[in-house]
Design a protein around this nucleic acid. Structure first.
Length: 227
DNA sequence: GCGACAG
DNA sequence: ATCTTGTCGC
C-alpha cells in the first residue's frame, strides 16, 4: 500500500538533501501560494491551495483536490504523506506562484528535509516552512512582543530556523528555509503575511479551504473567467 | 530502556 | 491531522 517503505523514504531524503538551495535570488514576488492538507477520513488526503497576490494578500485563485492516502504519518516523513496531493493540486492551478508557503517544517528537520524543502526541491521553486509546533531543534524563549525572533539550532549548533512571534503574547510559529530562499527573507514574508492573526494569511485560508469553508476570490481579479 | 515526535 | 466542552484572557 505504500509507495516507499520508511527506510527507503529516509534514503530519498538523504539524496534530495544535497539539492537544497539556501539563497534568495532577489526575484520580484507578485504571488504566493498557501498550502495545506487535511484528512476527511482515514483513507483520503485533501490538498488545498490558495493563491494570493503580494503584498496586498488578495485571493486570486483557490483549488482543492483529493487522492487516496498512500503513506502513514511518521514524524520526519510527513512529505511522503502530503507532498503527492500538493503536487497534484499545484498542477491544476492556473497561476504559477512565485513562492510556496507550507504548513510544515523546512530545514528544521532531523535530516534537514522537512516537507517545505522536499516540495521546493521537487518543483525547484522558492518555498518556506512555517509550522505551529517544533519537530526538531531547540531555541531560547524570547520577548513576548510581536516580531520577536529566536533562532533554532540543531545538535551541532547550526541555525536551522527561527521561532517567530507574529502577534504579541501568542505562541511563536516556527519558520525555516524550504528552498531557494534565506532565513531572513522567509521571516520577512511570514511576518508580512500575518497582519491580524498568529497564522500567516495564506496558511489560514488554505486551512479553512481544506476543511470545507468557502473562500471568496476577490471580485476584481476574476478576468481569467471573463473569456 | 525511556521520551519526543511537523500534520 | 481528527475527535470535542467548557473556559481563561484581552
Amino acid at each position: 500500500m505504500w509507495d516507499v517503505t520508511p527506510r527507503e523514504a529516509i534514503q530519498i531524503q538523504h539524496r534530495l538533501n544535497r539539492l537544497i538551495n539556501l539563497s534568495w535570488d532577489g526575484r520580484k514576488v507578485s504571488t504566493l501560494a498557501g498550502l495545506d492538507v487535511s484528512f476527511p477520513d482515514k483513507k483520503t488526503v485533501l490538498g488545498a491551495i490558495v493563491i494570493l497576490s503580494w503584498p496586498d494578500l488578495k485571493v486570486l485563485e483557490t483549488k482543492t483536490v483529493t487522492q487516496p492516502c498512500r503513506f502513514p504519518y511518521v514524524p520526519g516523513l510527513l512529505a511522503f504523506r502530503e507532498v503527492p496531493v500538493l503536487l497534484f493540486g499545484l498542477s491544476k492551478i492556473r497561476r504559477e506562484p512565485d513562492l510556496l508557503l507550507c504548513d510544515a517544517q523546512g530545514l528544521a528537520h532531523q535530516r534537514r528535509m522537512g516537507l517545505a524543502t522536499h516540495l521546493g526541491i521537487l518543483l525547484d521553486k522558492p518555498a518556506i516552512g512555517c509550522a505551529k509546533s517544533v519537530l526538531y531543534g531547540t531555541y531560547e524563549e524570547s520577548s513576548d512582543e510581536k516580531g520577536s525572533i529566536s533562532y533554532m539550532y540543531d545538535d551541532f549548533g547550526d541555525v536551522i530556523g527561527a521561532a517567530v512571534r507574529t502577534r504579541k503574547g501568542v505562541k511563536p510559529v516556527y519558520v525555516s528555509i524550504g528552498h531557494r530562499i534565506d532565513l531572513e527573507k522567509a521571516i520577512e514574508v511570514v511576518l508580512a503575511c500575518s497582519p491580524k492573526y498568529r497564522i500567516p494569511e495564506p496558511l489560514r485560508l488554505a486551512h479553512k479551504l481544506s476543511v470545507g469553508e468557502v473562500i471568496d476570490v476577490d471580485a476584481s481579479d476574476e478576468e481569467g473567467s471573463l473569456f
